[in-house]
Design a protein around this nucleic acid. Structure first.
Lengths: 197, 197, 197, 197
DNA sequence: GACTAAGCGAGACGGTACGTCGCGTCTTAAA
DNA sequence: TTTAAGACGCGACGTACCGTCTCGCTTAGTC
């Protein structure tokens, strides 16, 4: 299944589709960055991207789906923390990465209500983000257990919630900063909560 | 019943004001319960309450402020857990109460984006809810420290986030259930994380 | 039921309604005159009149209703031909007036399909125009019968159709001119068709 | 039924062309019958006929041209009334045939505005229909004159208008029925209007 | 019997207008 | 003075079709 010379079988006919999709996503990202998710408008995207409104609606059902696509695109780009040989460092990396992502462009803040409310978006978010993150945490925790750092009965789901829940709480409600110190505190607490012995 | 000179001196405003305010809030609550925060509309409230739109705008700047009033009203109604003589039970009570409240009528889900986004609402939410909850947790934790259950350097803010963060994460993102078992798991983890010695 | 001094009971509150209605109708008339009924657009009317689209839709269900209002307004403005003492001259006056009206601004041409097709508009047109014209013809014919010019069993409805049918046929299909000579020919034919004896 | 060398020599173009044209016209007729001319849509025709939109546009400039093709096709199918030896009967046949045609599928009602409005369609309709009908009436009237039933100076054009004008007026505006009795009344009136002597 | 050009299906695209919703402002008359 | 009533300008929604425009595939008709 190696990619031989003839490798554009997917390029069906024109690249029109791809060109306009790129323009739409770029305009969307710009608008969100400038005015927040609340200022995201299909008409605005159409105007800025030079694409017809209809073309946007041909690909995304509505405003929220478009925003979700951006969100998933941004979020999914991050990879699992590798095996660093140090459980605490791995969890810290995870938390810091998560922090960085959820702060970006205030997209999460603007979309969380729709995600929590529209079954359609809930499912997409869960499958594309929550489950992926969970798997990342699981691999780190499994290594921690193997190293004898964490107790074998550690509940990955709860550990995940304890790691990221505080971040979202600060982001959405308390307004407290998401910084290195906080990440340290959270990881320390989780390490103690699930320490072996 | 003519308006004679000697009116009740305590009846400050008019009575009309209170009557219509009551009607507005009731209609708002009903609409949120029936159709969620997204289905809450000033026009709908006016129609259902028999009050003019103008009257609503006279009291609340906009849709979000009205919804926030309802949210704060509901949330603030809950009181601090009393001294039960048992740190774990006190924290569990706190978590279970918080669970119950945030699930109510899906108001939090519908409003979180606005809360996280509008500085106006952020501040109101922080002062009226976050700080109050934090104080409640603090009193429970202080008692826990005094009893020798928790370490004296326990960071109340982080402890609070670890207690409620998982709830919000489930509510808003993962969709996992908020039940007694989960509350137990979270409280156990926090107890271990901040156990004395 | 005479109009006494106090005669503006209908002027409910502001004249805003009337002002915007006037602006809408004026813009509509202009657009029809410039570009025909086919070029009549709610958005165009809104733009030209400085009135919001919603305000237009508040008064007329859609494009066709608005155009019909203009049509009826124009058409209904004409009155029955008076008793001229001469049957032929009365019928000729009727035909010439009808000619003039139906040519105006090409509104009839643009609307006829909708009138013939939408039950809603059909009924309005019939009640507001057809029946009125019929009554006008009837009074002329009745006088003609009384004068001994026309046969007593003249069918008014058919006579009416014979008088105006040719006009509409020229207007809509054959494109032949609607002028004095044609009016004469038509009236002469009708006079002969229903001559007494 | 294999395609041997000796295909019909007359089969000029390709066969594909004819096949898709047939499919288009059939779908068009069905759509008009089901939903009226207003419900006729190029996209609908393409969908129903299994033909690409492009193919339709290759043959007809737009929606109206396609509809007109159908209209002319239906209307032109009728032939001139033969010499029946009776002027009144011949005119009656003409009127009844015209009645039947113009009621069919409400096509005339739906198209009349376009016919009256688009110079392109006006001309086509005039040449393909009006003039043809006029010739038919002329031959009947010429025979009537020859027979001594009608006056020699009978204006064929006006007679035609008097015969069909009432039909169109009923069809498009008054909504009165097009039936045998009405045809009789119209023909009687025209016979009297142009009777010899 | 193979080659080549026309005809075709598919469907993406920019565009215009639709009719709707709810916003927040404003004006008036009654209470 | 406060209210109910409701008209208004406005911005955006998501939809329906329009007519145009590549694309490659199919299919005759010619060599």
């Amino acid at each position: 299944m190696t990619e031989t010379a003839n490798d554009q079988p997917a390029k069906r006919h024109s690249g029109r589709r791809e060109r306009s999709e790129k323009a739409i996503l770029e305009a969307t990202r710009e608008l969100i960055a400038e005015r927040g998710v609340g200022g995201l408008t299909i008409e605005g995207v159409a105007a800025r991207s030079g694409v017809a409104k209809t073309t946007i609606y041909r690909r995304w059902r509505d405003r929220d789906e478009l925003a979700l696509a951006i969100l998933i695109d941004m979020t999914a780009a991050v990879n699992a923390p590798p095996d660093l040989g140090d459980t605490r460092r791995e969890l810290l990396t995870f938390v810091k990465t998560a922090s960085r992502i959820i702060k970006a462009d205030r997209i999460v803040q603007g979309l969380v209500s729709e995600i929590a409310t529209e079954p359609h978006l809930s499912r997409a978010y869960r499958e594309r983000i929550v489950d992926v993150r969970l798997a990342e945490v699981k691999s780190a925790i499994d290594r921690g257990i193997a190293r004898g750092d964490l107790r074998p009965d550690t509940d990955v789901r709860v550990a995940h919630e304890l790691l990221v829940g505080p971040l979202f709480y600060r982001l959405l409600f308390s307004g407290a900063p998401l910084n290195k110190a906080h990440a340290d505190q959270v990881v320390d607490a989780v390490m103690r909560a699930f320490a072996a012995r």
